[in-house]
């Protein structure tokens, strides 16, 4: 039942979140391209920065999404859903949203990776291979998605502690 709820919300909240997903996708793509342009210790520092920024960006987006759920949360509780069911459904939804954002980001990133050498004078730079860049971007995005989904779900879990009447009183 958590999956049913998550998929319904994923479909219906698409309009609201696509802007956020788009921004995230570009952020991930940009970081990925940056990571290709440095080597040595610089690459390590860049990679660490990208990892942190990806996690922060994805977590902030997911927490923002999880913050806008009071009304739905109240309805689910009023209809007899348990806190576990509700929290799990939000976790799945956030994971799917993050995954879609990251995949779009990878798509943009790969396109840039292919186009960049033709557009910019990059002589003297040692670029990461396509596989390396993809691997880093995917790994960082997944870490970000898991962290974001877990933080978002925790936020929903905390909210769901409140009595249903109190949740509705704050929404209305």
């Amino acid at each position: 039942m958590s999956l049913w709820l998550a998929l319904k919300r994923f479909q219906t909240t698409w309009v609201k979140v696509k802007l956020i997903i788009g921004i995230l996708a570009v952020v991930v793509a940009d970081f990925m391209v940056l990571s290709m342009l440095v080597q040595g210790w610089g690459a390590v520092i860049t990679a660490a920065s990208i990892l942190i920024l990806t996690i922060v960006a994805l977590s902030a987006t997911m927490l923002h999404l999880a913050d806008r759920v009071d009304y739905d949360l109240g309805v689910y509780k009023a209809l007899g859903a348990t806190r576990e069911t509700i929290t799990l459904s939000f976790m799945i939804e956030l994971f799917l949203t993050g995954l879609l954002g990251a995949l779009l980001g990878l798509l943009v990133g790969v396109s840039l990776l292919v186009l960049l050498p033709a557009l910019l004078p990059l002589k003297g730079w040692s670029l990461l291979t396509l596989a390396e860049a993809l691997g880093f971007a995917l790994l960082f995005s997944l870490l970000g998605i898991f962290t974001g989904a877990a933080l978002g779900a925790y936020s929903v879990w905390k909210k769901s502690h409140r009595m249903t009447a109190e949740i509705f009183a704050h929404v209305e």
Binding site: K8, T12, T13, Y71, D72, G74, V75, K77, A78, L79, G80, A81, T82, R83, E84, M163, F168, E172
Partner: peptide, 26 residues
């Protein structure tokens, strides 16, 4: 506990709220 009450509610009770409390996007 609230979750036990939730389970009881979904089996035994139907509630029509003063404000409809349907989910508008569904």
């Amino acid at each position: 506990p609230e979750d036990v009450v939730s389970k009881l509610r979904r089996r035994k009770l139907g509630v029509v709220f003063q404000v409809s409390n349907l989910i508008p996007s569904l």
